[in-house]
Design a protein around this nucleic acid. Structure first.
Lengths: 242, 242, 242, 242
DNA sequence: GATGAATGAGAATTCATTCAT
DNA sequence: GATGAATGAATTCTCATTCAT
């Protein structure tokens, strides 16, 4: 009735409003998880009403997917830049592992949502997020390939399996932390895991040096010793004789 | 009206009815996942009314937990028996890996529910199922320890991390299969993974001896041999001359 | 199929819809009591679906509480205005009693719900309704205090107990009526109760003067009068004789 | 199968089993109230299964009614005996009030159930419990009648209203206590209430003595004084004259 | 007399989504 | 672009009561 009293309607540029919604959704999803987050709560936090969200996102799941995509893009930002500053195959692999752990340690809540809701979802395979994930894990594949090219890794390495070793192990290992129990030490785990990935669990058995070489070396040394001894004797005889 | 028409009530001994409910729940949870399974459907499949389920299980989640526990117990059955028939550390480790993969391949639906609903649940840590899982993963820990005792593995092996490598990698690796895309080949994966776990990804040279060194070493040895020969000749000549 | 067939959605301003729901709930609670009233029925009567009620009220109990609060506010409306028109302590007290009885007589169903569900509930103490009740019973406390100040009531009157006498007695007395048996006559009860509250049940003799005493006193007075008369005669006779 | 293993079935004499059930039900109803008590819990406490209860009582409400009846009978036991030991109308009334308060103070939980579930129930009027209640409140009616007969109370006392004053006031007054907030002091309340019931709230105004009597008495005294004075004067004159 | 497995009809409540304004 | 009132289907869980054994 009274225009004075009418609620002030905020008209924001589209991308600004979208960002607000994504920020709110990120916070709520982090706090409550996907299932227990309600659109009403997200809207309230974004300072709008529920209906408005649907002007920007198709539905709750679509909103989640956008939250995750934005987050993934942040993960990818300056990845190649940083990685290119690291030299040596081993150091580069360690960096990839460490960076993943450090990221998890810094964003446990969203990681958890990702692991629970996205990676295990029916619609993940072939989705844009899956594509982002592929770009993310591409770095380790590249590092491994470099290692193969440099002759540091065996050429028949099953790259996808090695990739799963790294990401699967980490996910499994940090779950307690993601559930709020215990802490993680990215550096220590990165070192341990990198080491194991490199050399495996077997004791370093010196199988590489062909035994023949050893024998030949030993035999040669024996012969040198014997010859040297003989020469010494001769020299001694000559000195004694004059 | 007609007493003949009255619903025939099936009275079953308690443990039999419980088994029926668990069977029905296992089937429905496998088919629809936990979230989309309804108690009504489970009851219908078990041939009872919904209320009866609640005489046996506290609530839907409790039912899921019991389904999973029964299933886990089946996983554990004759594990140690079978494992004890396998000799050699490497073969035993391979068996543990293979068996896990084979089990997943045989029960994809329930595995999926377990990964989605149980392992990532808030109440998993410290739960009876967690305890069963510990008993299950105990086998790999034991095998690793045997390897250490036998001197086959380095003594400072971080056992929990190695365990996570095996189970985390497998879980990550089979996810596509669990989502209904693609197949898995337990034997091949078991071999690959076991190999990687044993020796890592690095080329099989114990110390970082550059491959080129071999040749130079070989050359050096040859020269030493030659030198030795020369010395021998020298020594022999002098002795023969006087 | 036919868009014409689509349910017509009534959009009402918030406070109007709220009023409709409260009206419907008041009617249903009055008819069936709290326990046997169903949200579905209330919604149907309000011309909406069940879910809509929950946009306005947290739950069934919250709805009941709001129904009661609105009703209490009606009880309080123009109370002080009317009361201020009544003069004399006794008349004012009688008005308070009568008004309460009249209100009960006019709203038996809701009174019943209030007595059964609210006043005896665990959450009543300290609730907003308790506060409203305090405002309502404040009037009698004030009237009593005025009586004390005017010297009509003894100064050490235990006000809360007197208040309980009035409201407790009424509640007890009208229960039959509230249960649908019998009728009540507010005027008659108000008079009786007011009288009893004023003077108690003891016979209206300030000290325990036996009724018989009056007559004896009267007789004594008569004899004294007679004696006085005799004395007067005597005195007069002697003066006249000398 | 194995008769050794078969559950031991307790066969108890009927009235003993009935007592056990009533005991259990009394405890559970006191703890949880009628609504939240479950037959299963009562059965468990009585050491039997739910079905057995229905051999002794028709349904849950019937059980409640029997619990209450047994309890009421305990209230009635030795009532008249004790009351007959108290002499004097006022003392007897005070005893009735005090006894009711003391009983409430000793059995708050069951009293609460009675007030909430029984007295306000639809089926109370005319029920056996109502009859027991009538027997219970008969005592106060009798005491009041005695007072009337003895001339201590006015003959037109509305007995039912006075009864409601006593029981209604008490019920209202103790509700806080029954809800677990606060305490009650039976002696103090009994005194206060008894006093108010006796004399009401009005200040003792000496209205009973007819003013005429006063005037006549005063007048008579004046006349006696005057006559006495006159006679004294005469006597003095005679003494002085001889 | 006692058992105890089974019933079965509800009831409250939730919340993503729509769409007239 | 934003509102926000309204939808409405779907679901879990309860528990007094029955009755074949």
């Amino acid at each position: 009735m009274n225009p004075q009293v009418r609620r002030v309607v905020n008209r924001l540029p589209r991308h600004r409003r979208e960002r607000d919604i994504l920020d709110a959704a990120t916070a709520i999803f982090s706090d409550q998880g996907y299932e227990f987050a309600s659109m009403a709560e997200i809207a309230a936090r974004a300072g709008i009403v529920e209906g408005t969200i649907y002007k920007y996102f198709d539905n709750k799941r679509d909103l989640l997917l956008h939250v995750m995509a934005r987050w993934y893009e942040a993960m990818l930002a300056n990845y190649s830049e940083h990685l290119s500053g690291v030299k040596g195959t081993r150091e580069r692999l360690r960096y990839v592992i460490w960076r993943h752990l450090a990221f998890i340690a810094a964003n446990p809540a969203l990681c958890r949502v990702f692991f629970r809701e996205i990676r295990t979802g029916d619609d993940y395979h072939g989705s844009p997020l899956n594509e982002l994930n592929r770009r993310y894990t591409r770095f380790i594949i590249d590092v491994l390939q470099e290692g193969i090219d440099a002759g540091e890794f065996r050429p028949d390495l099953p790259l996808p399996l090695v990739r799963d070793i790294v990401y699967g192990t980490i996910e499994h290992h940090v779950w307690c932390f993601l559930s709020g129990k215990g802490e993680i030490a990215p550096d220590a785990i990165a070192n341990s895991l990198c080491d194991l990935v490199f050399h495996g669990i077997a004791n370093a058995v010196p199988v590489a040096t062909p035994p023949a070489l050893d024998d030949r070396l030993l035999a040669a040394v024996s012969r040198i010793e014997a010859a040297a001894h003989a020469l010494e004797q001769q020299a001694a005889g000559r000195e004694a004789r004059p």
